[in-house]
Amino acid sequence: MDWTKQIGRYVIVMLLQVLLFNHLQLFGVCHPYIYVLCLLMMPITLPHSVDMLLGAAAGIVMDTFCNSLGIHTAACILIMFIRPYLLSAVVNDKERLNEQISLHTLGMEAFVKYVVILVLLHHLTVFTIAAWSWSHFGFVLVETAVSSLITILCIIGYNALTYR
């Protein structure tokens, strides 16, 4: 697997995240975290624990930009923990998992399921911890729904654009 490509993609996506997506303003409910794209599309050739450590690293970088030390870290560790189990659950043809994780290797249905579940889980975790109480949970749900929609569209759009 070409790791320079993974790192290059991470840098570009993080730039987009902190320069553009962190500054979206839409009634305070639209905070998409498109940087999870890099985590979701990472190949699963590495040991599971290394995966989680990479997730923690990506989370800490994001937290630095959001003044939310620990929140993205926790959410990223969580999705990186669940990722291999979810992949083996949604992908019928296990042969495909040896390749890159993308729309084209997994197929439309499996990839969309995979992305939707993990993005929703990640965003819900981030917003719930950030709210730090159940009294805003209705708002958290709206925030999760709107933001996840944008993130999911971005990830699927990215996959559609980079098809070759």
Binding site: H48, S49, M52, L53, A56, G70, A74, I77, F81, I129
Partner: peptide, 18 residues
């Protein structure tokens, strides 16, 4: 081991948050 690593990392993350 993977689950233990997960728990350890999450505990660390939540310690950071708190």
């Amino acid at each position: 081991s993977n689950f233990l690593v997960f728990i350890a990392l999450e505990v660390a993350a939540f310690l950071l948050i708190i």
